[in-house]
């Protein structure tokens, strides 16, 4: 049958509006000046339009980051929605940049925009990708590190969605611990 004009053309709204950020390391500038808001979107269609036209994670230069955060939350510890929170951190081996990074980052984005964590999705602030020579990192940030039921539920679902082996352990670190660490090791508050 013929569709009435406009029927079927509505975009699919997301639960949240999301902001995509890009960080490019320039040591001559302060950290915050290297962080750029790329765009915001709030429909499934606009997400793919953007994702399909930006560089894949594996093609970014070392020192660059992507971050996807709910509109109104800046991708930094200092934001009021982040400062009591923490992150589920997935650290990748160097060789996984070519084999796995793009798939894992896309899966992370789909978890966020699809609200994969059921009632605990409200605890999610965003996700960060760090492209680094020594090994890339992906993390989901949540807003309250002390909220054990939410944090552990999110961790279990996230690990399953990434398709990680049960033998692989991922850890949740409070931003407060990461910010005050005296070496490169931050203790895990939770693991799944």
């Amino acid at each position: 049958r013929k569709l009435p004009l406009g029927e079927g053309l509505e975009k699919h709204p997301l639960e949240n509006r999301w902001a995509l950020w890009f960080f490019k390391n320039d040591r001559n500038r302060v950290w915050q000046d290297n962080l750029h808001l790329v765009t915001k979107f709030e429909t499934v269609e606009d997400f793919w339009a953007i994702h399909s036209h930006i560089k894949l994670a594996s093609k970014l230069s070392s020192g660059c980051d992507y971050a996807l955060f709910k509109d109104g939350i800046e991708p930094m510890w200092e934001d009021s929605r982040n400062k009591h929170g923490g992150r589920w951190l997935v650290s990748l081996a160097k060789q996984q940049r070519q084999s796995n990074l793009d798939r894992l980052w896309l899966e992370t984005l789909l978890c966020l925009i699809g609200e994969a964590f059921e009632e605990y999705s409200e605890e999610v602030c965003g996700a960060v990708l760090n492209v680094r020579t020594k090994g890339d990192k992906i993390a989901i940030w949540t807003s309250e590190a002390e909220n054990q039921p939410a944090v552990t539920f999110i961790g279990r679902v996230y690990k399953e969605r990434l398709g990680l082996s049960p033998k692989v352990i991922i850890g949740y670190q409070a931003h407060a611990d990461t910010a005050t660490k005296s070496n490169s090791f931050t203790k895990n508050k939770f693991v799944v």
């Binding site: 997301l14 269609e45 793919w48 699809g114 609200e115 999705s121």
Partner: peptide, 20 residues
């Protein structure tokens, strides 16, 4: 009602927009 989408639904839109 919360707008939740599973991965298969979301992935279904991928190649439409990759070609635009």
């Amino acid at each position: 009602e919360k707008k939740r989408y599973d991965r298969e639904f979301l992935l279904g839109f991928q190649f439409i927009f990759a070609s635009m």
